[in-house]
Amino acid sequence: MAADGSRYEFPDPPPPTKAVPAVQCFDMRGARVIVGAAGRGWRGDLRADDPIMRGGELWVPVLPESEFYRSEDDGDEAIAALHPVETVWVEQADPAMDRRTAPPHLFERLVDNESPPTRYPVPASDVHGLTGRRVWVWRSGEFLADLRCVCEAFENSEGDIAINVCAERDWYRWARTGKAPRIDEALIHLAWVEH
């Protein structure tokens, strides 16, 4: 996924990510989730497994993304916290929603705290501190997701502004094992940060 001939493409931003109540979702294994409660707060960067019944109630096993990827790599069972299904929301891209970027001004960003907010993309060129951020990259007519930025913006050998990205799985493996990830270059105008 090296920077390619798409230097003259200027696609619309990726679709926003909305939170859907877990009770409305099926096949949740590996899904990105948010846990929390209205008026209290929200916690993301989590992955779920399929819900289970316990004591006549539905619970969702949830674990940090780093543990999810460790378990996937090692083939081990991970110990997940059980959350009542009504406190779990599944993150989903919604292509039907208006494709726009996150508003820059505070009063435009205010949300109703009854559910996790819809997350709109931010052009990578507008973001300070890109390293470690989850990004979308436009490549070959589609958005690639589950990527992490591994550096700040730089000028590449062709004089374009670019960033380096890796697969999210490799990002977490790098922290856990020290094995450097396979890095791919992306032109900054074709990258968006999840806000």
Score class of each variant (00 low, 15 high):
residue 78 A to V: 07
residue 43 R to F: 12
residue 79 I to F: 12
residue 103 P to D: 14
residue 83 H to W: 15
residue 84 P to D: 15
residue 103 P to E: 14
residue 35 V to H: 04
residue 118 T to V: 15
residue 29 R to I: 12
residue 41 G to P: 10
residue 100 R to F: 08
residue 86 E to Y: 14
residue 32 R to G: 00
residue 36 G to Q: 02
residue 104 P to D: 15
residue 70 R to H: 11
residue 85 V to D: 00
residue 38 A to Y: 11
residue 116 P to N: 03
residue 41 G to S: 07
residue 87 T to D: 02
residue 92 Q to C: 01
residue 37 A to F: 05
residue 38 A to D: 12
residue 45 D to E: 15
residue 121 P to Q: 00
residue 47 R to H: 06
residue 36 G to T: 02
residue 101 T to S: 10
residue 73 D to A: 00
residue 100 R to I: 15
residue 102 A to K: 11
residue 121 P to H: 06
residue 71 S to H: 09
residue 95 P to H: 06
residue 110 L to G: 07
residue 33 V to L: 10
residue 43 R to Y: 13
residue 72 E to Y: 02
residue 29 R to V: 12
residue 71 S to Q: 10
residue 66 S to C: 08
residue 42 W to Y: 13
residue 75 G to P: 05
residue 38 A to V: 10
residue 37 A to K: 12
residue 98 D to M: 11
residue 75 G to A: 02
residue 73 D to M: 09
residue 48 A to H: 01
residue 98 D to S: 09
residue 101 T to G: 04
residue 28 M to A: 01
residue 93 A to W: 13
residue 42 W to A: 02
residue 62 V to Y: 01
residue 42 W to L: 13
residue 118 T to A: 12
residue 48 A to N: 01
residue 89 W to G: 01
residue 91 E to Y: 00
residue 36 G to Y: 08
residue 103 P to T: 10
residue 28 M to C: 02
residue 64 P to W: 11
residue 67 E to I: 06
residue 90 V to L: 10
residue 108 E to W: 04
residue 58 L to S: 10
residue 57 E to H: 06
residue 49 D to V: 09
residue 92 Q to P: 03
residue 74 D to N: 09
residue 106 L to Y: 12
residue 108 E to M: 13
residue 90 V to F: 11
residue 87 T to Y: 07
residue 65 E to C: 13
residue 61 P to K: 04
residue 64 P to R: 05
residue 57 E to I: 11
residue 84 P to M: 14
residue 61 P to G: 02
residue 65 E to A: 14
residue 35 V to Y: 03
residue 68 F to S: 05
residue 46 L to A: 01
residue 31 A to N: 11
residue 100 R to T: 15
residue 110 L to V: 12
residue 99 R to G: 00
residue 90 V to G: 03
residue 116 P to R: 04
residue 40 R to Q: 09
residue 44 G to Q: 04
residue 64 P to E: 11
residue 62 V to T: 10
residue 118 T to W: 07
residue 89 W to Q: 00
residue 43 R to C: 03
residue 30 G to S: 04
residue 83 H to Y: 14
residue 106 L to Q: 11
residue 44 G to S: 10
residue 96 A to L: 10
residue 70 R to M: 14
residue 44 G to F: 04
residue 106 L to R: 08
residue 81 A to L: 11
residue 80 A to T: 00
residue 99 R to E: 06
residue 60 V to Y: 00
residue 80 A to G: 00
residue 39 G to D: 07
residue 100 R to N: 08
residue 114 E to N: 15
residue 108 E to R: 06
residue 29 R to E: 06
residue 66 S to L: 14
residue 38 A to T: 09
residue 60 V to N: 03
residue 72 E to Q: 07
residue 95 P to G: 01
residue 36 G to W: 09
